[in-house]
């Protein structure tokens, strides 16, 4: 395709491609944002309006009156930050061990971790639910964070292992020869060099956890632990009558995606490097 475009001096083709691509990607966002500032009576109009006659911000306070929005926001933050930090810390430790401290069976452990990605999350739900009922872990941040950090761990370990493989081993060997212990080497030499991988996975895992639906839906049934994803669905279900309150839901959607959009704008390079490292290896 690249050669094709070059040969035909396809500057125009490429730019037309960009424009079509941008429209397809951004159209739903335009729709959501515009809906959130459209008065309710204009949203429910036939035929629909592509730009409202009057703009309003009243959907936002109305949405916050309908559900404990800021409580959900806080819950989402605790859930996502907790899962992110836990998973990245544990995965960095495990990744270093699997990449450097070879032991009998270490390849098997790595293979097992990677293969476990293939097990569908929902298909493991029944036993987890039994455990959580028995241990009273429903509606606890701890229980939710354990599940979520475990879910993203295999991929994170994978990225960490491939990153550690790229660090020259000589520096660590030199440190060990100079009399440093394994732990000192890890803290003073390995950890600083792993910083880019750690930063990347912090961003990616935060986005994945922020977007998670299944675990909070099943294990956070009370308002004091519900996350935004679950809250958005409750908002739709609690609607009066048959029609969904799209005016309120669009306002909530906009505020829900703000953090991840900001992360994408500022962390684009890091995200791409993390997402592709796994695939290309």
């Amino acid at each position: 395709m690249r050669a094709f475009l070059r040969q035909h001096n396809g500057r125009i083709t490429t730019y037309v491609g960009f424009i079509i691509f941008a429209i397809i990607v951004l159209f739903p966002f335009y729709f959501i944002v515009i809906s959130s500032v459209t008065p309710r009576y204009q949203i429910f109009q036939i035929p629909p309006r592509y730009f409202p006659e009057t703009l309003t911000l009243e959907n936002y306070p109305a949405m916050m009156n309908a559900i404990p929005f800021w409580q959900f926001y806080l819950n989402s933050l605790i859930f996502a930050l907790g899962s992110t930090i836990t998973s990245v810390l544990f995965s960095a430790m495990a990744g270093y061990a699997l990449a450097r401290l070879k032991f009998p069976g270490s390849n098997l452990v790595f293979l097992g971790l990677i293969l476990s990605i293939a097990l569908p999350q929902v298909a493991l739900l029944v036993p987890i639910r039994e455990i959580y009922n028995a241990l009273h872990l429903n509606n606890t941040y701890f229980g939710l964070i354990v599940l979520m950090s475990s879910l993203v761990t295999p991929f994170t370990v994978w990225i960490m292992v491939s990153f550690v493989h790229q660090i020259p081993v000589e520096i660590e060997e030199a440190a060990l020869i100079d009399g440093a212990t394994i732990w000192q080497t890890i803290l003073r030499i390995v950890l600083p060099t792993m910083r880019p991988a750690i930063a990347t996975m912090l961003i990616i895992n935060f986005i994945i956890s922020w977007n998670e639906l299944l675990y909070p839906l099943i294990f956070a049934t009370r308002n004091d632990t519900k996350t935004l994803s679950v809250g958005l669905i409750s908002l739709g279900r609690e609607a009066m009558g048959t029609s969904r309150p799209w005016d309120l839901m669009s306002a909530m959607s906009v505020l829900t995606i703000v953090p991840v959009i900001v992360l994408v704008i500022f962390g684009q390079r890091a995200i791409v490097s993390g997402l592709t490292r796994g695939a290309v290896k």
Partner: peptide
């Protein structure tokens, strides 16, 4: 940047 946005938003939204 916009290429990543559909991936980055919650499926629910």
């Amino acid at each position: 940047t916009i290429n990543l946005i559909p991936w980055a938003i919650p499926m629910v939204v």
